[in-house]
């Protein structure tokens, strides 16, 4: 097997065209591919990073933003260790959709998921959503906020490294106190039935 200490799943979500694929490409391949077509279904990349001398493997799932892929992308929320919710700072619409996305997270993701709110495309001149507004929104919903530019390679590395560090820290803390992890983790879903109605 490959040599790594921790493996984390990171899932990117957000409206179509906010630059999810570009963020992933920039981070994993150092590229900014212009004229990228819309993602179909779910794309998948792996990058191993170094956190305090330990190898941490990030499994990055880049989902399609279009509505018709929604049910496919929802299947990835549950096992995600971190979610990156992306909006376009030049597109009010993509910001206005955030509550809907939060609703999805609420419904499908595990309760312990680490969530980052990312305002992408800060290189563009026509910024519509001020940093302050994004920051406030993130605070209200307990998310970490960061503004990025996949094109100018701004904060992209930081975003993913912050996630890797955050998750590694959490995993280490969990290892230190394994006793507290004994309760049954029920994740984001509810039990399907009780046994009151079974026959013997």
């Amino acid at each position: 097997m490959e040599d790594y200490k921790y493996l984390f799943k990171v899932v990117l979500i957000g409206n179509a065209g906010v630059g999810k694929t570009c963020l992933v490409r920039r981070f994993t391949e150092g590229l900014f591919p212009p004229g990228q077509g819309a993602t179909i279904g779910v794309d998948f990349m792996i990058k191993t990073v170094d956190v305090d001398g330990e190898k941490v493997k990030l499994q990055i799932w880049d989902t399609a933003g279009q509505e018709r892929f929604r049910s496919i992308t929802q299947a990835y929320y549950r096992s995600a260790n971190a979610l990156i919710l992306v909006y376009d700072v030049c597109c009010q619409n993509s910001f206005d959709s955030l509550p809907q996305w939060l609703n999805e997270i609420e419904l499908y993701a595990g309760s312990k998921v680490l969530t980052f709110l990312v305002g992408n495309k800060v290189d563009k001149m026509s910024k519509e959503i001020p940093t302050q507004i994004g920051q406030q929104f993130a605070q209200r919903y307990d998310m970490t906020f960061i503004e990025t530019s996949a094109k100018e390679c701004e904060n992209v590395e930081k975003l993913f490294m912050d996630i890797a560090r955050g998750l590694t820290k959490r995993a280490r803390d969990l290892n230190l106190q394994p006793e507290e992890n004994n309760e049954f983790p029920s994740g984001g879903s509810t039990p399907i039935s009780t046994f009151s109605c079974c026959k013997i």
Binding site: I40, V42, S71, I72, A75, S186, S189, P191
Partner: peptide, 27 residues
Amino acid sequence: SVDGVCAMLNHAGSTLEQDFREVLYTR
């Protein structure tokens, strides 16, 4: 459909690992 299969594999995992396991655990 590759994406469909991946999604369904995820759902299968969560159905077993959470829903069904919870039933056994509760008992």
